[in-house]
Design a protein around this nucleic acid. Structure first.
Length: 411
RNA sequence: GAUCCCGUAGCUCAGUCGGUAGAGCACUUGACUUUUAAUCAAGGAGUCAUGGGUUCGAGUCCCAUCGGGAUCACCA
């Protein structure tokens, strides 16, 4: 264990000795979220200059402590909950109640110069001095109760009156800091770490939650549309005795009771088609597929695919459905319902109608090659000249497919 | 699968010509009652991915292995 992990276990132990449960089982009733308060907090300035706080005067928030700043007998923290971050303000004077088992720390001997505006108390504040200042670590889950206000530097904050541990964090979190100009320090950027420890990535880079939210919206939009078209959502076998429906290397496993080899599906196509044969007019499935092949950022050994199959329709119908589906998905992931998506320097318009052309026309238009009049030898020649890999087994149709794949899909 | 690059403190990184292992943040101790990359003072923290080689001496040079990244090929 690292030094920090040992220290955190020590603070855990000390909390328990003080009778403070670091992992309470009872519910903490959350009544507000960080972003709502920051966005909607209101206050008015009265004629005599005093401020009147208008809302969020009794709130309870829960989240993780991501940063602390000590300022003498006050303390600032950043609390991060599912909505975002908000600053907490804690004052020593608010935590003067004794704690069983925690006796006299050093008396405060700075009481000589007490001023009226800052009534420094000589009372002990064990909750503040020991528990919050010493035994709290970055990353701890806490619940706080208090009221919203605006600090003199203008930041909407929560003045904490009650502080409770909800779950002590035993491992240090990468600390990402951002300065006033937006420069990011100590960013958690290692792609390996980010992919394998998504829970850490999402904690310290919460903006990536957007990816999860958008994915969920996309799936829900597709599901709603296909349901609207009268299709039935189904689930088909993942463990298959014969891995059909695609050409890919499968993961292999063994069923003990049946004593037989099974494969994780590489496709669900054949089972969906059987359901059409069985009499359903339309079926679809969001299906995890498993392919035991080379992987990179865009090729996951377990990836999710959507397939749908319908009876009595044709490709014209499918083109229309595809247009509508893609446009709906594009609009769904934008707050303002935009149908365009920015990819690098390109803006892609997902709203239909899309240009429609045949495979032959597409090839002709983008390569000048007329595959309709060309014979097999012509096609082979073209492939050789354009460095398209082919082999002797390929016939005319396959050669056209290869040319299309190389020249059109990449355009 | 091919080529190139990377692996040093919890995090992000520096480390010159081969000569005692460095910085910021995080952590520990202390000061500070509206701070915000808080600040100030002091301190602790490392099997330099692993194994081998060259050398008086290797984080540094060479070889191998492992892990990762980028590009290309293939696939979705």
């Amino acid at each position: 264990m690292t030094e920090q992990e040992l220290l955190r276990r020590e603070s855990l132990q000390k909390l328990r000795e003080l009778g403070i449960e670091p992992y309470p089982a009872e519910m903490f009733d959350v009544t507000a979220h960080a972003t709502d308060i920051v966005t909607n907090y209101r206050e008015e300035v009265l004629e005599d200059g005093t401020k009147n706080r208008l809302n969020y005067q009794s709130v309870a928030l829960a989240g993780r402590i991501m940063a602390t700043r000590e300022a003498g007998k006050a303390m600032f923290m950043n609390l991060q909950d599912s909505s975002g971050r908000i600053q907490l303000y804690l004052r020593r004077d608010d935590f003067v109640e004794p704690i069983d088992g925690l006796t006299a720390s050093q008396p405060i001997n700075k009481s000589d110069g007490v001023t009226a505006s800052h009534p420094v108390t000589t009372t002990e504040a064990p909750m503040f001095d020991t528990v919050i200042k010493k035994l709290l670590d970055l990353g701890d889950y806490v619940g706080v109760k208090g009221f919203a206000f605006r600090t003199k530097t203008g930041e909407v904050s929560v003045h904490v009156q009650e502080f409770k541990f909800l779950a002590k964090s035993l491992r240090p979190l990468p600390v990402v800091k951002k300065d006033a100009e937006g420069h990011i320090y100590d960013a958690f950027t290692d792609p390996e770490q980010r992919y394998r420890m998504r829970y850490v990535d999402l904690t310290v880079n919460p903006e990536f939650k957007q990816v999860f939210l958008k994915r969920s919206k996309m799936i829900r939009t597709i599901r709603n549309y296909l349901d609207e078209l009268g299709m039935l959502e189904v689930e088909t076998p993942i463990l298959q005795p014969i891995h059909g429906g695609a050409a890919a290397r499968p993961f292999k496993t063994h069923h003990n009771t049946l004593d037989m080899t099974l494969y994780l599906r590489i496709a669900n196509e054949l089972y969906l088609k059987r359901l059409i044969v069985a009499g359903f007019d339309g079926v679809y499935e969001f299906a995890k597929m498993f392919r035991n092949e080379g992987m990179d950022r865009t090729h996951n050994p377990e990836f999710t695919a959507l397939e749908f199959y319908v009876a009595y329709k044709d490709y014209n119908w499918l083109m229309e459905v595809t247009e509508i589906l893609l446009e709906r998905v594009a609009r769904a992931i934008h707050e303002e319902g935009a149908s365009t998506v920015q990819v690098g320097d390109h803006t892609i318009e997902f709203a239909g109608p899309y240009r429609r052309l045949t495979m032959f026309d597409a090839i002709h238009q983008y390569t000048g090659l007329n595959v309709e009049t060309a014979d097999e030898a012509d096609l082979r020649n073209y492939c050789r000249q354009n460095h398209i890999e082919i082999d002797a087994s390929m016939g005319k149709a396959k050669l056209i497919d290869e040319i299309f794949g190389e020249k059109w899909k990449n355009t």
